[in-house]
């Protein structure tokens, strides 16, 4: 098994020399995921029927496809892309493949801010992503402060443990709030695991702008992000002001994670699984990695959500649970490989 995995990895790494192939492959995966996700459910719609159902209002499946599944799929793809790129950015900032907005509590920080907004200012629902962003940003700042021991480089152990502690505190605060204000709070269980259930176009409208801005800004910063992969002394010698650069990249990561959390709750592990998997076929350079991670993240969330919706239909499971089942073992795998 181990040898088989190693062999597969080597084969996949050959795709690094053929960047067009790896991009096409991931794009094809996203297209397939799209058709599978839109087509599956209580009403099955064939791939050829989907465009017709979408465009012709008299089509029997028009409502299901255009008003129920399409917004959910669009939001799911955006959530996946945002979380995957947020993961890439965090991993670059802390130079550690274990970083993920979920694991480090950044999503929980965004979630706490979002829940608090919904409870204390229920008429300001449109502001949720903004406050979630502030929550995520504060968490990132806190983490960096906690895990950068003075003068030295960042310690992976400190980082992950700080993340665990920070996350526990935020989730406890969220639990207290939702119990105290049960009548106004969102569905806590679904929010905590992360779910796309019942998302509509208005959710997508909330999610799309910060996601697009975040993705575009990250892509524009691909080269400075590459330089951040080097150690601080070397990056400084190349003319990079390391601390402001790190702050900018983690803010971008917080923006993307917060956008995803505001509509889907604490969807975890996408930012961990996708960048680590995509790096095998793209290499560490951001100009290639970011785009492919976005495609891969969108596909993963769509496929996981399809499983969540259809596994024990008509009951809809939260997508976060399915993702955690994939992500948990991945996390352990990386931990096993990286730590002595």
């Amino acid at each position: 098994m181990k040898r088989w995995v190693a062999r597969l990895r080597i084969q996949l790494q050959r795709l690094r020399d053929h960047p067009r192939w790896s991009a096409s492959l991931l794009l094809a995966l996203l297209v397939v995921s799209f058709f599978v996700s839109v087509g599956s459910g209580a009403v099955e719609v064939g791939p050829l029927d989907i465009p017709r159902a979408l465009l012709q209002e008299e089509h029997p499946d028009h409502t299901v496809v255009a008003d129920v599944r399409m917004p959910r799929v669009a939001a799911g793809a955006a959530v996946g892309a945002a979380l995957a790129v947020a993961g890439v950015l965090l991993q670059t900032v802390v130079r550690n493949p274990l970083a993920d907005p979920g694991i480090l509590g950044v999503s929980a920080g965004a979630g706490l801010a979002a829940v608090a907004t919904l409870i204390f200012a229920p008429d300001r629902a449109a502001w949720v992503p903004f406050f979630a962003f502030l929550g995520a940003l504060t968490t990132v700042g806190l983490l960096l402060a906690l895990s950068w021991s003075r003068g030295a480089t960042l310690s992976a152990l400190r980082l992950v443990l700080s993340g665990v502690a920070v996350q526990a505190i935020f989730i406890a605060a969220m639990a207290l709030l939702t119990f105290a204000f049960a009548e106004r709070a969102p569905a806590f269980a679904a929010f905590l695991v992360g779910s796309l259930n019942g998302l509509g176009w208005q959710d997508f409208a909330l999610l799309a702008p910060p996601t697009l801005i975040g993705l575009a800004a990250a892509q524009a910063a691909a080269r400075p992000l590459d330089v951040m992969l080097l150690d601080d002394a070397t990056a400084g010698g190349l003319g990079m002001s390391v601390k402001p650069a790190r702050l900018a990249a983690s803010s971008l990561s917080a923006l993307l994670a917060a956008a995803a959390v505001s509509v889907a709750g604490l969807v975890g592990f996408v930012g961990l699984v996708v960048p680590n998997a995509v790096r095998v076929i793209s290499g560490p350079e951001h100009s290639r990695l970011l785009v492919r991670a976005a495609l891969g993240g969108a596909s993963l969330v769509l496929l996981a959500d399809t499983v969540a919706r259809t596994l024990i239909a008509p009951l809809e499971l939260p997508v976060g649970a399915i993702l955690a089942l994939i992500g948990g073992p991945t996390f352990l795998g990386i931990l096993w490989k990286k730590l002595p």
């Binding site: 790494q13 690094r16 992969l229 080097l230 150690d231 070397t234 010698g237 290499g283 560490p284």
Partner: peptide
Amino acid sequence: LPQDPACPEGL
């Protein structure tokens, strides 16, 4: 150039 700079895997 520092003495032994760390290089990310696969660069």
